[in-house]
Nucleic acid binder design. Structure first.
Ligand SMILES: [Mn+2]
Ligand SMILES: [Mn+2]
Ligand SMILES: [Zn+2]
Ligand SMILES: [Zn+2]
Lengths: 136, 136
DNA sequence: CATTATAATAGAATTATTCCAAGATGAGAA
DNA sequence: TTCTCATCTTGGAATAATTCTATTATAATG
C-alpha cells in the first residue's frame, strides 16, 4: 500500500480515497476486470463513487503506462494492471480471460510492405478457447 | 455476383435485395468496415435500410463462418468478409486496419497449464503502429 | 399461385462510455 | 498549519453502439 502511494506521489497524479481504493483493487489483480467490476468493488467502500471516476482513473493510469486496455472481448473493455507485454486467452463461453506470458516477439515479424508503411509500436496475441468449466 | 448467390442459395439464408447489397459491398472488401460503414453504403441504394438489418446480416454471416468480427479497435467493431485465418495491424492515429497474411501458427504455441485448461479454438495477432500518412 | 418461414423495418430499449458543470479536496507553497 | 489552486469527484445528461420487439413484407418452396 505504501508502495502504491510512493509510486504515484509527486507525479501529478492526485491520490484521492477513491483512487486509492481503485489502485488497491487493481494491485496484482489478474482477473482483467471491466469498468463495472471495478465500480462494483469500489462502491462497497465508497457508495457514492461514480462511473466517471472509474473511467477517469483507468484513463489516467493508461496514459501513464500503468495499465492496459484489453480488446479481446467484443462486448466490453477489460483492464489489466500489468502493463508488461503479455498475451491473453478468452473463454468463448464464460468470457474469462487469462494471461499468457510466453514471449512470441522473435516470431512475430512483419512483411516488408507493412514495415514500410507502419512504424510498429507493439503487438498482442488473442487466443480463443473454451475453459474446462464451460466444457461440462 | 452469381457466385455470391449460389453460395447462399438453399442454405437457409434468405437472399433479400438488402442482403445482396451487403454481400456485394463486402465481397473482396479489405477495408474492415464498421456497421456504420456498411449501413451508409447500403443506404445509398436502399434508403430505408435499418441498422438492425445490417447487424442481423453480419451476425447471420458470422454464424456461418463467412465473416469475422475484428476487436482490434477499442472504439467499435469492424467486420471482415475474409474468414481465413489472418492478422491485422491498426494505425493508432487514423484507425485504419490492414491485413497481415503471415502464418504464425507454428510459433504461437501455448504453455501446458493453458492447454490443460482450455480447448484452443484459434488465435489472432493485433499489431499496433502509426501509418505513413499519420506520421506527417 | 399459396403457404410459410424468415427478413426488414421503425423505433424503443439497453449498454457502454463520455461529457459537463458544480462543488470538493489533495498537494504543495507559504 | 493554513491557504490556494489545480485537479478530482459527482450526478446526471449526452452520445454512441448495439440489441430487442412488434409489425409488416417478402423470398423460397412446392
Ligand atoms: Mn493480463
Ligand atoms: Mn482482414
Ligand atoms: Zn469458460
Ligand atoms: Zn494512420
Amino acid at each position: 500500500m505504501e508502495k502504491i502511494i510512493s509510486r504515484y506521489k509527486g507525479k501529478g497524479f492526485k491520490l484521492t480515497p477513491q483512487r486509492l481504493a481503485i489502485l488497491k483493487f487493481l494491485e496484482g489483480n489478474t482477473n482483467h476486470p471491466t469498468a463495472e467490476d471495478i465500480f462494483r468493488e469500489i462502491k462497497k467502500k465508497y457508495p457514492t463513487v461514480s462511473f466517471a471516476t472509474v473511467y477517469n482513473t483507468v484513463e489516467a493510469l493508461r496514459e501513464r503506462g500503468e495499465l492496459l486496455e484489453i480488446t479481446i472481448n467484443p462486448d466490453r473493455k477489460h483492464f489489466d494492471p500489468n502493463p508488461n507485454p503479455h498475451h491473453h486467452i478468452i473463454c468463448k463461453v464464460c468470457k474469462k480471460i487469462e494471461d499468457i506470458f510466453t514471449d512470441y516477439s522473435e516470431a512475430l515479424k512483419l512483411p516488408k510492405d507493412i514495415t514500410d508503411e507502419f512504424e510498429i509500436l507493439g503487438n498482442h496475441v488473442d487466443f480463443y478457447g473454451i475453459c474446462k468449466n464451460c466444457r461440462n
